[in-house]
Design a protein around this nucleic acid. Sequence first.
DNA 1: GGGCACCTGCAA
DNA 2: TTGCAGGTGCCC
Length: 317
Amino acid sequence: MPELPEVETVRRGLAPAMVGARVSRVTLRRADLRFPFPDRFAARLEGRTVTDLARRAKYLVAGLDSGESLIMHLGMSGRFDVTLPDGSNLSPGDFYLEGALGNAKHDHVVFAMGSGATVTYNDVRRFGFMDLVATEGLATCRHFASMGIEPLDEGLDGDAIARLFRHRIAPLKAALLDQRLIAGLGNIYVCEALHRARLHPETPAGALAAADGRGTPQAHRLAQEIRSVLAEAVEAGGSTLRDYAHTDGGSGRFQHAFRVYDRTGEPCRAPGCGGSVARMVQAGRSTFYCAVCQPPAKAPGAKAAGAAGRHFRHKAG
DNA sequence: GGGCACCTGCAA
DNA sequence: TTGCAGGTGCCC
């Protein structure tokens, strides 16, 4: 379940069960997820102690005392169930709480820890995957080599966004989803950040760079809103969609704070705005926005092709 | 850049 | 039955 706040919530829930513990047994219920498991996957994990559990973008990275790291990606529907030695259960950052919960049909990997804890990976759609990579070469491994800056990195300010987006004609929505530029944002938080920053999702990304290459006021606003929406979501334990009965302490609460995501036709939640949330499709994915708060903008040099057919004006924006 | 594929399950 | 789902990667 995937965006940065959910993965971070999973990391925090998994850490007590895994860090400092030895992996005593790994059970694979199938030969692959999205990709085949690496060679001798279980053998390379068993007997090893987990030294730390980190997050990079939407990936979890468990360091091992063997010098390798276990990389885990949750795809669209991956989740972990943790049973601690005292018998307590949790599903940190959970998303697919219904059918999958307690449904062993989609339990694909079970890590039995020396401490007595059990960590079970469940993934209905199997878009997730796991890999083992030398810890020394993590930064240049195929998963991370071309990955962009962390959205919560101090360095991601308006000027950094301008440097990344300068000269790009791709819509802001697509640029923000491009993990090679900024890594960790997904469909929900891009929609929410754009709405908070009052930027139309089709604005050419390059419009956030001023003539001198520095960030426009909009770029700085966007950087600030990305940071705040992610921080608030992490604080809330992420978002839980398709919430259902019997949600335990593992579910997030941020879905109640969505201002536009999945709210087509409902009132815009911006103070004083009488608009309603609209839905459009960009690159095959739903974009939710408010046409009142997020009016179309034209960029210098961008093709004038807006439905409004307006000419570019210097004061546009 | 966009389009589609990967896979399963749910709601309309 | 069709369309949709919080991701990514490979195709042109």
